[in-house]
Design a protein around this nucleic acid. Structure first.
Length: 393
DNA sequence: CAAACGTGGCA
DNA sequence: TTGCCAAGTTT
């Protein structure tokens, strides 16, 4: 048998004329029309790196306040490397994709141990650090260090797909290879970092996914998709799977003005974050079954159900979450349960400093609004007055 | 290579 | 309310 027929990727070339016709106008447009973003005011590689990580799958307007706060809290690679992971996750609270924060932290420690605290200056070396993929390595190498390193993000993929009429769905191997080859050819020249940013900025503001502003486009004359009236069909939208349902039971265990919190496993959803102790349950299962699963997870077989406190729903990209709040109590306090990395009793105020998902934040707000803590008086369950002033613990 | 991994904004 | 999208990486 002959070997399996493989697509032999015919990588595109960019003529010197095309190279010049695209590069000049894009850089010129960028110089005059770029947004004033805070990370464009610094040359600190660490600050630029941080911006690139935060911007992964996240909008500019969301990132700006996080970037400023995080940088003030962890001003250098060294400061980040020596900070406890808990503090780092707390600084990332609400930004999402929390593995980014864990990888950032690990990478900072590697920069200290392997590179004397200085971020390496080439994409090839950056690629060896946790959280650096092909995109981020190219971005930091080109923007912070001036290497002629290409990058392809969603913006660049769209811009190049239209300019060069690149076919194929997102994720298609041949398509990716083509896009990286084009980006690699175009980045050669003056100011590679600015050129890469120009490509992304153009995609974000002019060559947008919907209603692109072709009449304002500086490289319209060289755009194949524009010439052929195919701008709206390139690139094709990616096919998304329907969100799966995920139902979670939460233990709301008030005691002496505090609630029981747990730290989740490092891996998986909300990895390493704090939560009201949570366990996955079958869809629409009974409170009694859910309670049993929580008791098992906490290692407290005699856990009692005091009452249900309602549900919190939360829509993620790939998950439809239902958080079922179950108020519980028990005579035996949990030790280190193996389902959780750590258990801790906290006041709501203390909990604000913990790394926590927005989903859990919402659940906590619901619990607090229901005055569970004020009503919880283990020694006098009949207590009904609310907001009773409490002595400090 | 498909699936997992969050969140907020906007049509 | 629902669907789609945004400066991706990891397994």
């Amino acid at each position: 048998m002959s070997p399996r027929p493989r697509t032999s990727p015919v990588l595109p070339t960019v003529s010197p004329e095309r190279h010049a016709a695209l590069r000049g106008p894009l850089l010129n447009w960028y110089d005059h029309g770029k947004r004033d973003l805070p990370w464009r005011r610094t040359r600190d590689p660490y600050a630029i790196w941080l911006s690139e990580v935060m911007l992964q799958q996240t909008q500019v307007s969301t990132v700006i306040p996080y970037w400023e706060r995080f940088l003030a809290r962890f001003p250098t690679v060294g400061a980040l490397a020596s900070a406890p992971l808990d503090d780092v996750l707390s600084g990332w609270k609400g930004l999402g994709y929390y593995s980014r924060a864990r990888n950032l932290h690990r990478a900072a420690q590697e920069v200290v141990s392997r590179f004397q605290g200085r971020l390496p200056a080439t994409a090839a070396e950056l690629l060896t650090l946790p959280g650096f993929g092909r995109y981020t390595a190219g971005a930091v190498a080109s923007i912070a260090f001036g290497e002629e390193a290409p990058l392809v993000d969603g913006n660049v993929a769209r811009v190049l797909s239209r300019l060069f009429e690149v076919e194929g769905l997102p994720g298609d191997r041949a398509r990716e290879a083509t896009l990286w080859a084009l980006a690699g050819a175009l980045v050669k020249g003056e100011r590679p970092g600015d050129f890469n940013q120009a490509l992304m900025e153009h995609g974000a503001t002019v060559c947008r996914p919907e209603s692109p502003l072709c009449l304002l486009c500086p490289v319209r004359a060289g755009c194949l998709a524009y010439a052929k009236g195919r701008v709206d069909e390139l690139p094709p939208a990616k096919v998304r799977a329907a969100p799966k349902k995920l139902e979670l039971a939460l233990a709301v265990w008030p005691r002496e003005g505090k609630l029981l919190f747990a730290r989740r496993a490092e891996e998986g959803l909300f990895g390493g974050l704090w939560e009201l102790p949570t366990t996955e349950v079958a869809e629409d299962t009974t409170d009694a079954v859910a309670l049993g699963q929580l008791a098992s997870a906490l290692g407290t077989p005699d856990l009692k159900l005091v009452g249900a406190l309602g549900n919190v729903r939360r829509q993620l990209t790939h998950r439809a979450l239902t958080l079922r709040l179950l108020r519980v109590a028990g005579p035996v306090l949990p030790r280190q349960a193996k389902s959780f990395q750590e258990l801790r009793w906290c006041t709501p105020q203390e909990a604000e400093a913990l790394g926590m998902s927005t989903a859990m934040q919402r659940a906590l707000e619901s619990v607090i609004a229901q005055d569970v803590l004020a009503a919880a008086t283990p020694t006098a369950p009949a207590q009904t007055r609310k907001r009773r002033p409490r002595a400090s613990p």
